[in-house]
Computed example of a mutant assay.
Amino acid sequence: MKNVSLWMLALALPMSSCAQSKPEACAPEFSNATIRVMPVAMPLQAGYVTIRNRCKTTLEITAVRSQAWKDVSLHSTQVVKGVSKMREIPVLKIAPGASLQMAPGGSHLMLMDPTRDIKAGGSVDLNFVSRDGRVFRVPFSLKAI
């Protein structure tokens, strides 16, 4: 009986450890993250990044935060009747397997009211918040225009 009990325990241990381990959540890929820094201190900068959704569900970015600015917002530039207009957007939606490239004249980040001196040559972290509450910390290079 002891041999049978030990054998059953040996079989149960690997199964219980498998049942307790959770697969890692799918995460987007961020690349080419840069913030344009003006040669003189300005109350706002623009940020650009490429976001690739490697997951099987739509990625929804609802906010971006940083300790280096009081406000970071998602923006889109559109040409309406020949006039370029910037609009704040509430959410960035990226379909499964798709990428979004933030670039001048399109989607971008507006970084307003810096909390410290922002100079080209360094880097700063921005935190992208998804609708499901996950936070993705992304280092951005600070580059002179």
Rank of each mutant, 00 (worst) to 15 (best):
V129S: 05
M38G: 00
E24K: 12
P23F: 12
C55H: 07
M8Y: 11
P90Y: 01
V79C: 04
T62Y: 02
R116Q: 15
I35D: 03
C18L: 15
R36H: 07
I118A: 03
I51K: 08
A41E: 06
E60Q: 14
K22E: 13
A144V: 06
P43C: 03
V91C: 07
R87L: 10
K85L: 15
L59D: 01
S31A: 15
T77L: 06
N127Y: 03
W7P: 00
R65F: 08
I35Y: 07
L100K: 09
V83P: 06
R116H: 05
T77S: 13
G105T: 01
G97W: 08
P28Y: 10
E60R: 15
P104N: 11
M86I: 10
L142T: 09
L111A: 02
I61R: 01
L100I: 09
V138N: 03
V37R: 09
P23R: 10
D132F: 03
I51Y: 05
S16Y: 08
K22Q: 13
A25M: 08
L59I: 06
A27R: 15
H108V: 01
W69A: 00
Q67K: 12
P39I: 00
A98W: 00
Q78T: 13
S5Y: 13
T77A: 05
R131L: 09
N53E: 07
D125E: 10
F128W: 13
V83S: 14
F128Q: 03
Y48S: 11
P39S: 11
L11P: 01
N3C: 03
I51M: 10
V138H: 03
V135Q: 09
K2V: 15
P139D: 05
D132N: 12
I145D: 14
M102D: 04
F136E: 12
I118E: 04
T57L: 04
A12H: 00
V138F: 03
R137E: 10
L74G: 04
M112G: 10
D113S: 08
F128P: 04
L111W: 02
M86G: 11
K143T: 12
I61C: 02
A25W: 01
E60L: 01
K81N: 15
S141F: 13
S76R: 14
I94T: 09
S16W: 12
C18G: 12
E29C: 06
L74P: 05
S141Y: 11
M1L: 13
L6N: 05
L9N: 04
A25T: 14
L9G: 07
I94K: 14
P28D: 09
P28M: 08
K143M: 15
R54A: 13
T58H: 02
K143H: 03
S130E: 09
C26H: 07
K81P: 06
M110K: 10
W69D: 04
W69S: 02
K119L: 05
M38R: 10
C55N: 06
K85I: 15
K85H: 07
K119I: 02
A68C: 02
S17M: 14
A27C: 07
A10K: 00
S17L: 14
R131M: 05
V124I: 14
S84V: 07
A144L: 13
P39R: 04
S107V: 14
G82D: 10
R52P: 03
D117S: 10
Q20M: 13
G106E: 00
K2I: 14
M110E: 06
L59C: 04
K70E: 11
M42L: 03
